[in-house]
Amino acid sequence: MTSTVLKRCFALSLLSLFCAGPAIALVGSAQASTKTTPYQTTRANSGTPNSTHVTKNSSGVIISYGNSSITYRAPSAALATLGQALYQENCASCHGTEANGVPASGVSGAFPDLVGLGPATITFWINSGRMPAANPRSVEAVRRIPRLDNGQALAIAAWIDTLAPGYPLVPYPHLKNANVSDGAALFALNCASCHTIEGDGDALAYGTSSPSLRHVPAIQVAEAIRTGPGNMPRFTGNLSDAQVNDVVKFVTTAIQHPQNIGGFGLGGLGPVAEGFVGLALGVGVLALVGFWVGERD
């Protein structure tokens, strides 16, 4: 415990040394458009700064908070300048130069307003490869190889955060402290109804779909739970940071590395795949053997 506090103090001092100047300037400019709280929960240890260890920089901006389960950290404000350039290059054509969802004239359609969404939302969409979108007109963006790396994503998040601070910050789960069994129970109650109990995802209403969880890194799982990207709902008050950490642990262990002690896992499609195997490999092969055993005329 003390070591993490020490580390945070160290990080804090480093940050204040290197980026206090630009941070103050940028944050100051964004005070006017601060959004109200319905996007956040007031419950302690549930994703917003209502937690035990809140760290602020010298100008009073929260740069990290959390607990022994998840630490939420703001991207370094020093990246904001780089982030602005990256944003204008990669995102502004749809989300607008002010990140308010109003694109430059000539581009019609509704695009999400990014101001005040918080860094976790921004980094999730970029790091999961959904943004920049392959096809901005599609029903929903799908996971693909990210076009920007994590550092660039953090930079863009840092710049957008300067327009108006938002929460949650980027969650860093401490999986060592998680209880995979509690995670399994919470997953079955809250997540499996869309992602399936094997985490494979499937087609949902009106052309939407729930993505597979097989290759999602821990941070993105936590980000998705807390921010509710796209059609996914947010999980805020009913899941504490410890519980989110449990779910992340379950997803990154039991879902992503299932214990298939019974042979090949049959793609997690469940009884449909089992039915095809039973009929084709079971009845089918046996009928072929029967074809050999018997006569043809």
Binding site: T41, G228, P233
Partner: peptide, 10 residues
């Protein structure tokens, strides 16, 4: 204040 907009729980 517990639930952010867009949240769901059982």
């Amino acid at each position: 204040g517990d639930f952010a907009i867009g949240s769901i729980a059982t």
